Simulated assay, not measured.
Amino acid sequence: MKKLAILGSTGSIGTSTLSICESFPDRYQPIALAAGQNLDVAFAQCERWRPQVISIATEELAGQLQQRLKSAGITGIEVVHGTAGTVHIATLPAVDFVVSAIVGVAGLEATYAAVKAGKTIGLANKECLVAAGELIMAAAKEHNVALLPIDSEHNAVHQCMSGGTPREVQQVWLTASGGPFRNTPLADFEHITPAQALKHPTWVMGQRITIDSATMMNKGFEVIEACRLFSLPPAQVRVTIHPQSTVHSMVEFIDGSILAQISVTDMRLPILYALAYPERVDATPAPGLKFDLAKLSQLDFSAPDLNRFPCLRLAYEAAETGGNACIALNAADEIAVAAFLEGRIPFLGIPRTIEQVLLQTPGGHPASISHVLEADLQARVTAREVIANQLAGVR
């Protein structure tokens, strides 16, 4: 029985992980949850799973949750809050496996603490490796911690890597759906609305990651993540547009062989793979994970157009530089995406903002998580200034 801490238990990865726990109750037990700000879902998860500890975003929400639990006659659950609470969840001695699924740098400190505590990590938070991958990978090596990717693309690469040794890998291919605008004329990009950008053709995700998919910044983050997870230079991590989203990624070996991982587009599958690793378990108890081979009747692949998707170009440039550039890339993107969703900047204002922030970011590599957070904060300040200047120019 693996005892789990789920960081981001109320999000899509968190709820999918709990679905796996539901399907495999003899294998996986969630005993610690970090639930963010969704009080209603956090309470429902406490009712169903009776964790030892739950963390929620603020002290006020923690008080409200404690009162609701008391009123419902639910006892024995410790309620904590904030970053310290999330770190507590991630380092709980009884926990065997930590699912890191908090979006953004909010989950960074807890994930790093879990690595240093020797926990096995199921990583679904791109930003951890984008912003602090150098530190996290070094800590994982020092503490002999397994970092098992839950993102479907990196999970696919992890599976395919078993077909050879690291020295035999020619390159890794990350597949991308291309988002909703892969065939949209470039002249129309300036007029793309948030409502249009939020209509992803394949996946149902949160707002930021959906916009990142539309700009292909999400794939850029995955390039950086792959470089760090698999110790590869950016030139060996390639992106290919694959609209069917059937092949989740591929590994090409030096003898010309290419291994591809194919499965349903359901996040429960990579979560189950990570939780069970190095075993594979029969997925019969989790309906819907079996793949229909008829869906292989058409597989299309094409190179991404970097003029159409400048965010992907910027991510490759940041990957080559590393350090502060990757931190700034992530922070500036988060600020720019929020401004786009608020209608303050156009769709192409996202890459324009990011590029300006990268130009203003000093070089260097952070020596600690606190340095990462400082650089992240400064990049956000710079991004807001860039956007304010853009708006002033428009007026």
Score class of each variant (00 low, 15 high):
residue 301 F to L: 14
residue 83 T to D: 11
residue 205 M to T: 00
residue 15 T to L: 09
residue 140 A to Y: 03
residue 164 G to C: 01
residue 58 T to H: 15
residue 292 D to N: 14
residue 230 F to A: 05
residue 172 V to P: 00
residue 269 L to T: 08
residue 168 E to W: 09
residue 18 L to T: 10
residue 381 V to Q: 13
residue 280 R to G: 15
residue 223 V to G: 02
residue 57 A to I: 14
residue 366 P to E: 10
residue 157 V to M: 00
residue 346 P to G: 08
residue 60 E to S: 13
residue 359 L to K: 13
residue 238 R to V: 15
residue 82 G to F: 03
residue 113 A to T: 00
residue 58 T to W: 15
residue 229 L to F: 13
residue 297 S to V: 07
residue 332 A to V: 07
residue 320 E to Y: 10
residue 117 A to P: 06
residue 231 S to M: 03
residue 58 T to P: 15
residue 269 L to E: 03
residue 82 G to C: 01
residue 142 E to A: 08
residue 117 A to V: 04
residue 335 I to C: 05
residue 205 M to V: 05
residue 374 E to L: 07
residue 178 G to V: 14
residue 330 N to S: 07
residue 184 T to I: 15
residue 232 L to D: 03
residue 361 T to I: 04
residue 143 H to T: 02
residue 227 C to W: 09
residue 172 V to C: 08
residue 257 S to N: 09
residue 111 T to G: 09
residue 235 A to H: 06
residue 41 V to N: 03
residue 140 A to W: 14
residue 97 F to K: 04
residue 142 E to F: 08
residue 160 C to R: 00
residue 124 A to I: 13
residue 208 R to L: 01
residue 269 L to K: 02
residue 48 R to F: 10
residue 337 V to I: 11
residue 10 T to I: 00
residue 345 I to S: 05
residue 7 L to M: 08
residue 175 T to M: 12
residue 256 G to T: 04
residue 87 V to Y: 03
residue 256 G to E: 00
residue 44 A to V: 06
residue 91 T to S: 07
residue 295 K to E: 13
residue 138 A to G: 09
residue 67 Q to C: 15
residue 270 P to K: 15
residue 241 I to T: 06
residue 313 R to H: 05
residue 380 R to I: 06
residue 152 S to C: 15
residue 380 R to Y: 13
residue 229 L to P: 13
residue 134 E to K: 11
residue 174 L to A: 02
residue 101 A to Y: 04
residue 92 L to Q: 10
residue 167 R to Y: 07
residue 242 H to G: 07
residue 75 T to W: 13
residue 146 A to D: 06
residue 217 M to D: 01
residue 320 E to K: 15
residue 356 Q to G: 04
residue 28 Y to T: 03
residue 40 D to G: 04
residue 283 A to K: 04
residue 323 G to T: 13
residue 273 Y to F: 01
residue 355 E to R: 12
residue 133 G to S: 10
residue 375 A to Y: 05
residue 248 H to D: 02
residue 393 G to W: 13
residue 212 D to R: 12
residue 329 L to R: 03
residue 310 P to S: 03
residue 280 R to L: 05
residue 303 A to H: 12
residue 170 Q to D: 03
residue 294 A to Y: 00
residue 379 A to G: 03
residue 114 A to R: 11
residue 113 A to D: 09
residue 330 N to C: 05
residue 208 R to Y: 02
residue 302 S to C: 00
residue 8 G to N: 09
residue 272 L to I: 11
residue 69 L to G: 12
residue 371 H to S: 12
residue 132 A to W: 11
residue 128 C to P: 00
residue 210 T to I: 01
residue 287 P to W: 13
residue 391 L to Q: 15
residue 83 T to C: 05
residue 36 G to D: 04
residue 157 V to F: 00
residue 290 K to I: 01
residue 105 V to S: 11
residue 373 L to D: 01
residue 173 W to L: 06
residue 308 R to Q: 12
residue 284 T to M: 01
residue 178 G to M: 15
residue 88 H to F: 03
residue 190 E to W: 07
residue 333 D to S: 12
residue 311 C to N: 14
residue 280 R to S: 08
residue 66 Q to K: 04
residue 161 M to Q: 06
residue 108 L to Q: 10
residue 21 C to V: 11
residue 390 Q to S: 12
residue 100 S to C: 10
residue 312 L to P: 11
